[in-house]
Amino acid sequence: MFYRGKYADGGDGREMAPKRQRTVDPGCSFYGSPSSSFMYNPAPYGYVSQPPLPPPFPVVRLRGLPFDCTEADVAEFFHGLDIVDVLFVHKGGKFSGEAFCVLGYPLQVDYALQRNRQNIGRRYVEVFRSKRQDYYKAIANEVSDERGGSPRASRAKSYDEGKDSAEHTGVLRLRGLPFSATKDDIMDFFKDFVMSEDSIHIIMNLEGRPSGEAYVEFENADESKAAMAKDRMTLGNRYIELFPSSHSEMEDAISRGR
């Protein structure tokens, strides 16, 4: 999975804030009286103040997740927080029970930590502070697995070949959408294609919240096949997977979310 953020490298929410510039009364006896030959100049010529550091990267690590855990489960676990990305960690081609969760704001990390040792299903989940470099290292490992010869990579390759050979009906399923994605965002993602808001269907889960999936109806099968060139391109901070679908599958998904 490929995601990006605009936060300081290595930030884990515990760095000391930059020290405030000390100001000293020029009349202080330590620096001499106003008539003294030595005078403290609080803002010497050419002094340039340092800009504030960017906020720490808002990511937490989860451990002890159920092995059938989904992104929607993690979003429900952190209900009320803005989820930018969920990256499940695999080892040897198998889900390790760990994940990284990128949040919308650094302040939300403290709220996420309050969910430590609460349950997803029958498993209690541990929540830890993490760092940007750990998150991106995990992404690199996932990419390496996909390029290597692991069973997981072989399944992924087979799945991609299935996408290429699938029959197109003019409908594509999108997976991995940001939970905050709107129809306008999806229209912008497919800006090279003609579509209306009515042709975009964002799928909701049973609680009435976005599931991270959507269906898009194109003018014809040739258009949907051409749109597959956008597979695994990014929308916001998320890379989006595209799958050939059908009107019946789309209607079933829409009805389940009602």
Rank of each mutant, 00 (worst) to 15 (best):
I186V: 08
H168W: 05
E219F: 13
N220G: 15
V171H: 12
I186D: 05
V171A: 05
M187Q: 10
A221V: 14
H247A: 10
H247F: 08
S211V: 06
S224A: 13
K191N: 13
L235V: 04
M204W: 03
F190Y: 08
A227M: 04
T169C: 07
F243W: 14
S224N: 12
K191V: 05
D222G: 14
M228H: 04
M195E: 09
L206I: 01
K163P: 05
R232G: 00
G208Y: 04
A227E: 09
D198Y: 04
I186M: 03
F193I: 01
S248L: 12
S224F: 12
G162H: 05
I203A: 01
E213V: 14
S246H: 06
R232T: 02
R232M: 03
N220P: 15
M228R: 00
R173P: 00
D164V: 03
M187R: 08
F190I: 00
R232S: 04
H247L: 07
K183Y: 10
M228S: 06
P244E: 05
P210Y: 15
G208C: 06
A214R: 09
G176H: 06
G208I: 02
I200Q: 02
D192W: 08
K230L: 08
L235K: 01
I200H: 05
G162W: 04
P210S: 13
H168M: 06
S245P: 05
N205Q: 04
A181T: 01
D185E: 10
Y215N: 07
H201D: 03
H168C: 09
E223V: 10
I186W: 10
P210N: 14
G236Y: 10
R173Q: 06
V194C: 11
E219H: 12
T169D: 09
M204Y: 09
E219T: 09
T182F: 13
M228P: 02
F190V: 01
M204Q: 07
L235W: 10
F218V: 12
K230H: 10
M228A: 07
R173K: 02
V194Y: 13
M233R: 08
R209Y: 10
D192L: 07
L242M: 08
N237H: 11
T169P: 08
D231C: 03
R238A: 13
V216Q: 14
S180I: 00
Y239R: 11
M187C: 09
G162R: 07
I240E: 02
L177V: 01
P210I: 10
D164E: 11
R175G: 01
E207G: 11
P244M: 04
M228D: 08
P178K: 02
G212M: 13
L172Q: 03
M187W: 02
T182Q: 05
L242E: 06
S199F: 00
K163D: 07
N205T: 03
G170M: 01
S211Q: 15
K230W: 07
A166S: 11
N220L: 11
S248C: 09
E167K: 05
Y215S: 11
S165W: 06
L206K: 02
T169S: 14
V171N: 08
Y239T: 06
I202N: 08
L235P: 08
L242P: 00
D185F: 12
M195R: 10
E223K: 15
P210Q: 14
A227W: 10
S248W: 13
H168Y: 11
P210L: 15
T234K: 14
I203T: 00
